[in-house]
Amino acid sequence: MPRQRSVLIGASILAVIVAIALLAPYLGTRDPARIDPVARNKRPGAERVVRADDGTRTTLTYWMGTDSLGRDVYSRVVYGARVSLVVGVSVALISAAIGLVIGILAGYLRWLDNVVMRIMDGLMAVPAILLAIALVSLSKASLRTVILAIVIPEVPRVVRLVRSVVLSIREEPYVEAARALGAPLPLLLARHVLPNTVAPLIVQATFVCASAILVEAILSFLGVGIPPETPTWGNIMAEGRALFRLFPHNILFPGIFLAATVLAVNMLGDGLRDTLDPRVSRRL
């Protein structure tokens, strides 16, 4: 079963990344924001002997080298996992929640449908990264702004999906029967329509999560995302841009982590889609 293997591999990689993010302080990391002018631009594996105040000597190893401010890249990469996961999960949850509500209402209430879908069409006509960049420019860069800026372009995609599910469900005999029995609208939506949207929504949320992690990294990389002192994979790479020719490790290591994380989430999504929605799997 290659499909389940895809879920398994994706979930395993993701579990490792989550563990790294949670255990960041215990993985031999140093303060990821600590600037150390003496240790600038060390190559991966470089060592330095540090003498503490009481005279004891300890050897520091920079497994992934340091950046041009002397910050330890390994520590920054490990702590960067936190930001990426927080952004990915928050954007997935928030856009799924907003999209679910709007999608169900638009799919069920005819009068609302036309207006809402025209707005969604308009939002979708703006390429996602471009919209996110424009939104970020509106206020001061912060984690919250970045999450919001990524959520807004994702919402229409969720709305479309939920709405299409609702449109097919609302014609089902059991929904008609419930309506004929006089079930109030909120109950009807919650009991009969909502459960049918869960499976496709979970799959979509996984892909939203993957794309959110990528977009966050892109925003940080372009210098319009989360403030540069915060360790994020995009920020580490942005910092390493200038001296890339001499010290490619600043881009290499966060790049590998970023790609592995997004790959894992995508594999999980692919596998989930095939498991939860066999109709689509036959087509794709």
Binding site: A210, P248, A259, V262
Partner: peptide, 14 residues
């Protein structure tokens, strides 16, 4: 799947 996951700038720098 790989192409979807590796960020544009990582490919570029590689």
């Amino acid at each position: 799947v790989f192409g979807f996951s590796v960020p544009v700038f990582v490919i570029g720098y590689a």
